[in-house]
Amino acid sequence: MHIAEGILSAPVLAGGAVAAGAGVYAGLRALDDEAIPKTALLTAAFFVAGLVHVPLGVGSVHLVLNGLLGMILGWTAFPAILVALTLQTVLLRYGGLTTLGVNTVVMAVPAVVSYYLFVPFLRRRPRPALVFAFGCAAGAAGIAFGALLASGALALSGRAFYGVAALFFAAHAPLMVVEGIITGGLLLYVWRLKPELFLEQERTP
């Protein structure tokens, strides 16, 4: 899901950078002092998850965890993902420096969407089985929406949207399952440990 250098056209790169900048600004406004350690830990988790290769399907497929990040961090997922992606680019050569903006948008927008979609359900204090189910849905949706956005970015740079999207979904279908289960498990764990993470503070700018 990390788009490399030399593929996207200049307007798409610029648009991605602007959108990512706006998202990071909103995320930093939403970030209060007490949330900094939590954000740091989840940024590190996102960074390391990118190293975990999922040996299913074709292509380079690894964990993303953007659904989980979104549910716990809300808009703060934007700066967290930007930082993690920057380090992945510099240290691991994932993606590229010019595509940082687009890649941030591709992974952070689904995170914010999963925050708005799934956290309201958590506020109703559902049963643990339902929490797990929400986590699964958020994990899978994070990947699916990210694949859709990445296909869109490639399509805007002159590729056939359906071909790219079909390839993306074929490659990421196993990941959606794996990531769904992992996100569900982690969400259930965090929910049992510290439900106030989801109940108390709003994480919107």
């Binding site: 954000t39 740091a40 590190a44 960074f47 390391v48 993690a84 380090l87 240290l91």
Partner: peptide, 18 residues
């Protein structure tokens, strides 16, 4: 090595930001 270095950098960065 890269993973450890990256995690350390992230924690340091957020500590600095805080």
């Amino acid at each position: 090595m890269e993973a450890l270095f990256g995690v350390a950098l992230i924690l340091a960065l957020f500590a600095g930001y805080g």
